[in-house]
Amino acid sequence: MKNWYSICALNEGAEISIYDEIGAYGVSAKAFLADLGKLPDKAPLTLRLNSPGGSVFDAVAIYNALQRHAGNVTVSIDGIAASAASYIAMAGDEIIMPENAFLMIHDPSGMVMGTAADMRAMAEALDKIGGSLLRGYAAKSGKAEKDIAQLMAKETWLDAAEALEMGFADTMSEPVKMAASFDVSRFRNTPPEIVEAVKAKDEPVAVKPEPEARLEPDTSSGDETDPEPDPAVIRAEAMTYAKTVVDLCRLAGQPQMAAGFLNSEASLEDIRQALIDARAADDPDISSTHPQPGPAPQAKPWGDVIACTFKRKG
């Protein structure tokens, strides 16, 4: 099952990556929060972001969870943190942006079908959500809420230098290669250079050929041999691999699978994919046999429209 986030255990703490649309592929913040809850309360976390946004409700839940986390949270905006993703970034104790990264904030948006009362209810909901987001941006930046409101209303894109100057970031690092698989042209004020950078990510990069190696005369005596591997180094590498495998299985709620992975000496990438597949298989579809919360089929669908819309427009 494809996912929009990953959580990898480190020797100390964990690294969380959100590299896609938040709330996509039917995976909600509920799964993210369950995985986050398995980490030690004081574990230091590194959150890496490269996302166009997504579900604003999921983003608020993730922001609140990271704010409650007792350990230090370092956020690295590896490419773009737009819309709902920029709000999650505000939960960081330190926010790092490469020189060519971007952050975007705007008012939440949505769609509704129905009566005038339905329209007014939607407008009230958007105002409340916008107010919550505004307070989070203001708390991190130190700027007045009225100033944040103006930035959100006009959909503001900030590069690293601008974000640093305005208090939305703490540190600017060296530029990185843009890597994104999402469409940022759907936003109304996306700078053209960002659209072009995302489009160009799949273009082949010209690689300068290495000069041909020159053969030198063999002046060795023929008695030299490769050094013997250091047993201590081999043991340390094996222990690190084993600990990582066990931690991954524990985080995925599949500790019983660790022994099989260790016996087969599977790669960490294969292990992560196997754990994702195992978890997907363990999640039963109960919708057909158990009533689910929400409006009845004959009810007005505007609540469902809001939920779906925010997954696309957050």
Score class of each variant (00 low, 15 high):
242 A>L: 06
246 V>P: 12
234 I>E: 12
238 A>Y: 02
260 G>Q: 05
262 L>I: 13
260 G>W: 02
260 G>M: 03
231 P>E: 10
237 E>N: 07
258 A>N: 06
231 P>A: 05
232 A>C: 06
259 A>W: 08
233 V>Q: 10
254 Q>N: 13
252 A>T: 04
252 A>L: 09
236 A>P: 00
241 Y>H: 02
259 A>G: 12
236 A>S: 08
257 M>C: 03
250 R>L: 11
241 Y>P: 00
251 L>V: 01
233 V>C: 05
230 D>R: 09
240 T>Q: 13
265 E>A: 15
255 P>D: 13
243 K>F: 03
230 D>H: 11
264 S>M: 07
253 G>I: 01
237 E>I: 00
258 A>R: 05
267 S>Y: 05
263 N>L: 15
237 E>S: 02
233 V>M: 10
249 C>E: 13
246 V>I: 09
230 D>S: 09
259 A>N: 11
247 D>M: 05
256 Q>G: 06
249 C>S: 11
235 R>T: 07
261 F>H: 08
262 L>A: 10
242 A>C: 13
253 G>E: 11
265 E>L: 15
253 G>W: 12
232 A>K: 12
233 V>K: 06
236 A>Q: 05
248 L>G: 10
243 K>Q: 13
252 A>R: 07
263 N>T: 15
266 A>D: 13
238 A>L: 06
266 A>S: 14
250 R>F: 15
259 A>M: 12
228 E>Q: 07
228 E>G: 11
228 E>Y: 08
236 A>N: 03
237 E>K: 03
254 Q>M: 09
249 C>T: 04
264 S>W: 08
251 L>F: 03
232 A>N: 14
254 Q>D: 08
245 V>P: 10
240 T>S: 06
230 D>L: 15
263 N>R: 15
235 R>P: 01
248 L>C: 07
238 A>E: 14
263 N>F: 15
244 T>F: 05
267 S>K: 06
254 Q>S: 10
235 R>Y: 03
258 A>G: 09
256 Q>L: 05
231 P>Q: 04
245 V>I: 14
240 T>Y: 03
234 I>N: 12
261 F>C: 00
262 L>K: 10
265 E>S: 14
265 E>C: 14
239 M>F: 01
264 S>R: 15
245 V>A: 09
255 P>R: 12
247 D>H: 14
257 M>I: 02
261 F>T: 00
237 E>Y: 00
251 L>P: 03
244 T>A: 13
265 E>N: 14
246 V>G: 10
231 P>V: 01
246 V>N: 12
255 P>Q: 06
232 A>R: 11
240 T>A: 08
236 A>M: 02
250 R>I: 06
234 I>H: 12
258 A>T: 05
250 R>Q: 15
232 A>M: 09
248 L>N: 07
249 C>Y: 11
252 A>G: 13
250 R>M: 13
257 M>E: 11
238 A>G: 14
254 Q>T: 03
248 L>I: 05
229 P>D: 11
255 P>M: 04
253 G>P: 08
266 A>Q: 14
230 D>Y: 08
255 P>K: 10
255 P>G: 04
239 M>R: 04
243 K>S: 05
263 N>C: 15
250 R>C: 13
234 I>Q: 11
261 F>G: 00
246 V>W: 10
263 N>V: 15
250 R>G: 09
238 A>W: 01
232 A>G: 06
256 Q>R: 02
228 E>H: 04
